[in-house]
Amino acid sequence: MLVKSSPHIRDNSSTQKIMLDVILALCPAILASAIIFGLRALLVIAVTVVSCVVFEYLYCRLMKKPNPIADLSAVVTGILLAFNLPSTLPLWMAVIGAFVSIVIAKQLFGGLGHNFANPAIVGRIVLAVSFAGRMTAYAYPEVTNGVAALAGATPLVATRNADLPLLTLFLGTHGGVLGETCAAALLLGGIWLVVRRVISPVIPVTYLATVAVISLLAGQEPLVQLLSGGLMLGAIFMATDYVTSPYTLTGKLVYGLGLGIITCAIRFWATSAEGVSYAILLMNLLVPYINDLTRQKPLGGGKRK
């Protein structure tokens, strides 16, 4: 019998299948954003998805690389990018965001598998730094009983003064970017991904637990901190990107811990109200080192260099 070199165990999973699962998991949140923010939300999502796919296609065509759009990763990037934008954003800005995500953050570094950070996060941060006013021009869902929800700030800013009911936070009927508000829909998607074994729950759980513990220590309400801002979206969908998260268990724990610490540091002690996207970008950059430092030593193997 011939034994070839590993891997010996094969699985019929492919990038396309995994991405399809992620898209399915994102569907509840897409639906929620359409209900909360109206049809304009769907328009923003459609624009980013189409422009992400078009940019990916054009770049690969221009560079004479094999066409990768069938792996659906550009679609996922497009949806995630749209989830990070307010529904009022001018559409050409969304297109710029898609260009930065796909061409600058992903393809220039070599395409899927070579990007140094989550493309959607880079797109979001470039837009947030460039068009600070537009990116925080959150739409507020219409509320039947008054002006309470129209205070002009996202819960993270608002909770510094007054409390939104937890149920509102959980259902997401408050201001914010498209995909971050409805924690219920995001959790549903997260559970689907874990059940389908697309993501391991280690990173989101460590991340959320760290934030909860630090919130408690800092005298903040942990549940409010968990449910508001982009934390759920970031922890479940953005931080778990295969390319930009560690592959060892210890590495994942360290990564989640780091994410939680940076997020809380920015939220509680910095001038910016939200720190999830910067936390993910910073930890993305550290992933190669985390992987190196937490690699398992082969049994009987010598000292690691």
Binding site: M93, I96, V126, S130, F131
Partner: peptide
């Protein structure tokens, strides 16, 4: 609207 990020270090 100009993209302020291009005028800044990143």
């Amino acid at each position: 609207e100009p993209m302020a990020i291009l005028a800044s270090p990143p």
